[in-house]
């Protein structure tokens, strides 16, 4: 027969208290993630051309810096501005902006606005970009 002393009772009480405390702390941590469906950034890109743009969406997410850099060099250095069928290059920043720019209150928004389609993801990812120190971030017309 187990002899329960006052001392052991104190220890059991303490353990129960600690466990409850831990459950409460952990619970409070995980509640937003478990309850929310919004994992990842909310990209405010307008789906002007459907789900697939110049490449499938997931490839664009990963490869767009390379695409932009490749085509900027061929345009700047060699004067290649279109594909052989006359369409715009895959990495045309101008085409991205003209197609995906979004309006707020009837005006196109700049990259300083967190809802700009570039900013919305870049802020989440913590990646800075300097394209728009020179390039315009809204359509011209």
């Amino acid at each position: 027969m187990i002899k329960i002393t006052t001392y052991t009772l104190e220890i059991i009480k303490f353990k129960v208290f600690i466990t409850l405390l831990l459950i409460m702390i952990m619970g409070s941590c995980f509640v937003p993630v478990v309850a929310g469906d919004k994992i990842g950034p909310e990209i405010t890109v307008s789906k002007a051309g459907g789900d697939e743009c110049v490449l499938p969406a997931d490839e664009i997410r990963r490869l767009h810096p390379g695409l932009l850099k490749h085509d900027r060099n061929s345009t700047m250095r060699e004067g290649i501005r279109t594909l052989s069928d006359g369409g715009h290059l895959k990495g045309s920043l101008k085409a991205c902006i003209n197609c995906h720019a979004i309006k707020e209150d009837g005006k196109y928004i700049n990259t300083s606005n967190p809802n700009h389609f570039c900013t919305s993801c870049h802020v989440y990812a913590g990646v800075s970009f300097d394209c728009f120190q020179c390039h315009r971030d809204t359509p011209e017309k």
Binding site: R81, N110, Q133, C134, H135, R136
Partner: peptide
């Protein structure tokens, strides 16, 4: 600078000059 022309991106810290309107020539 802000609100640059679409065909002539230009910004702080860069040198620039006449490009013979390369965008128009193309």
């Amino acid at each position: 600078l802000t609100d640059q022309k679409e065909n002539t991106p230009r910004g702080k810290g860069c040198v620039e000059s006449c490009n013979m309107c390369v965008n128009r020539i193309d």
